[in-house]
């Protein structure tokens, strides 16, 4: 006689075809999905850099200068360049999803997607210009 099956909370033993851990490498659409999901790591990375930057600022001119010096090293520069690509990917995919997350209807007709995504891009441009202006003037 077979022993009774053992059930654990998260691994119920019903039949499932096994999905490879590398399922996302099979097509561009899957890969794009995973790349989009991975953008969050780079978002968190830059928050950590920002916190370190604020801490250096709080500690005084010397710490701040030291931190700027560290940012000039090859490793942070490469990490930042890669992060920028991922963050841009996040921004673009995020804005392009907006029309699907909140379809707008006027008079029963659905507004075309670009009209919903466009204001996001305008806001992005305006905020970027404002930040650059604040940091770069005089």
């Amino acid at each position: 006689m077979k022993p009774p099956p053992v059930y654990t909370e998260y691994h119920p033993k019903w039949y499932r075809t096994r999905v490879s851990t590398y399922w996302w490498s099979r097509s561009w659409a899957y890969l794009k999905f995973i790349l989009r999901e991975l953008t969050s790591i780079f978002v968190a990375y830059f928050v950590v850099i920002t916190l370190l930057q604020i801490r250096a600022l709080k500690q005084g001119p010397q710490s701040y200068a030291q931190f700027q010096e560290w940012l000039r090293m090859p490793l942070p520069v490469v990490l930042n360049a890669v992060s920028l690509l991922f963050v841009l990917f996040h921004t673009i995919t995020w804005f392009n999803l907006a029309p699907r997350a909140m379809p707008v209807r006027i008079g029963g007709k659905r507004i075309a997607d670009p009209w919903i995504a466009a204001p996001n891009y305008v806001a992005w441009l305006a905020i970027s210009v404002l930040v650059a202006w604040l940091l770069l003037r005089g």
């Binding site: 000039r72 520069v77 995020w94 930040v131």
Partner: peptide, 22 residues
């Protein structure tokens, strides 16, 4: 958080991560 990151992060990352250090 997705909105905030999308709007503010590219410019700050570009300036403080690349444009100023380089």
């Amino acid at each position: 958080g997705g909105v905030v990151a999308a709007l503010l992060m590219p410019i700050l990352l570009f300036l403080y991560g690349l444009a100023f250090p380089l």
